[in-house]
Design a binder for these strands. Structure first.
Lengths: 231, 231
DNA sequence: GCAAATTAATGATTTATTCAAG
DNA sequence: CTTGAATAAATCATTAATTTGC
């Protein structure tokens, strides 16, 4: 056991957790790379955090949500109205979920629900003592702002963070782009470990300008309904 | 269907495929980010390719190898010696596999098997007409060279390409680093799409200098043996 | 109260499965 | 049917809760 065994894994601060949970409950299930970057930049105000932490957090949270839910479903005979309630809750979440244009191009025309989504993200919420520099309500406001501009932008590969570095905002806000438009196919990064290493003291972290954000997959069948696929 | 619907997915050239398969057969099962980058850089000589293509290729190839194997195992009563043969083949591959220092810190002292591995990677191999600039045997040589320098460097996260941008080579070649040493924990990625987009014509692609490479996980139980873990 | 010992949560990886292009 | 791409499930590993014996 090394003496200065710097913690190997991310330990989220209460504020970080709260924001993440708030976003999750708001419908953000599988943020894409750009969203992750922005979220990370903001959460770094409250402590050390990396993009992969955010990525993993959402992945795990979603998986364990599903898992808990399924377990509650199967474990013993569930009371009818409880079951129903659960289903409704999850269907609501589904509605909120944003759309990834490639994987589910035909299922829905709902796009950019994020406009409806994010403004409601941060409810009037208690502001506990911030463990780092910024009080929580600050993030609330800014997050609501920076995430509000989400925009479908093309294909992205969520599981391997897929960053486009073309920062310029496309003219077209949402101009019915053909499914296979492929700008933003570059493969890039994240780079939050070293910069945002020890909280926010080392550099401004100016929220990394807003720029379009790719929506993510809608597919999340089998929460409430049985998997009924026409394979 | 758009007129100029540039193919949405990577279509490997025969040379690329051959090199990849050669590496796979040589023991490269789960290249890390740096390796992927280097491989990509080299394969880009033969045609458009991105890091994620390489990543996916290895992932899929490994998975389907396993799958084929399992299917052959279960499907009907397998002839004894065939089974054994398969097992041996896979155990050999296991031996070749490199070690990720964090996940399996105690299981073995085998490290940096890559020195034993890579020199044998590229067998004397026929050189078909290269469809792009470089004949295949070139890649063979250079790949054997550029991959030979692999070095355990710290933790990496394969699924989300995890690049360290600290390019300086650590003094210590392999100095018994404590398990929780954490240099190289940055998070980065790759940028191969735009640069190596349309073959190699746009820029030199100087093979991105050699620098230390993280070895990847050894763990690959349950090919031939049943999972027998002392959890 | 307090650590050592257990257990529960959850961050991080790997593997399996699914979707869809060709 | 093959296989590139993407997601979900399973698993591993470490940290936090908590129990327990003193």
């Amino acid at each position: 056991m090394p003496v200065t065994a710097a913690s190997t894994r991310w330990c989220p601060t209460p504020e970080q957790l709260m924001v993440l949970e708030e976003m999750y409950r708001g419908g953000m299930k599988t943020p894409n790379a750009t969203q992750i970057q922005q979220i990370t930049a903001h959460l770094s105000h409250y402590g050390k955090i990396e993009g992969k932490n955010v990525f993993y957090w959402f992945q795990n949270h979603k998986a364990r949500d599903r898992q808990r839910f399924r377990r509650r479903l199967t474990k013993q005979h569930m009371v009818q109205h409880h079951h129903l309630q659960q289903c409704q809750q999850h269907q609501q979440l589904l509605l909120y979920r944003s759309v990834e244009p490639f994987r589910q191009p035909l299922t829905t025309t709902i796009r950019n629900l994020q406009h409806h989504l994010f403004p409601h993200f941060f409810q009037p919420c208690y502001t506990p003592a911030a463990s780092h520099n910024h009080p929580l309500h600050y993030i609330h406001k800014s997050s609501a702002t920076f995430l509000d501009q989400a925009q479908v932008q093309g294909r992205c590969s969520p599981q391997m963070i897929n960053y486009t570095w073309k920062v310029e905002i496309p003219e077209e806000k949402e101009t019915e782009k053909p499914v296979s438009r492929s700008y933003g196919d570059d493969w890039m990064i994240i780079t939050d470990s070293e910069p945002t290493s020890t909280c926010c003291s080392t550099r401004p972290l100016e929220t990394l300008e807003l720029f379009p954000v790719t929506a993510t997959s809608l597919k999340d069948r089998a929460y409430c309904s049985d998997p009924n696929q026409t394979s």
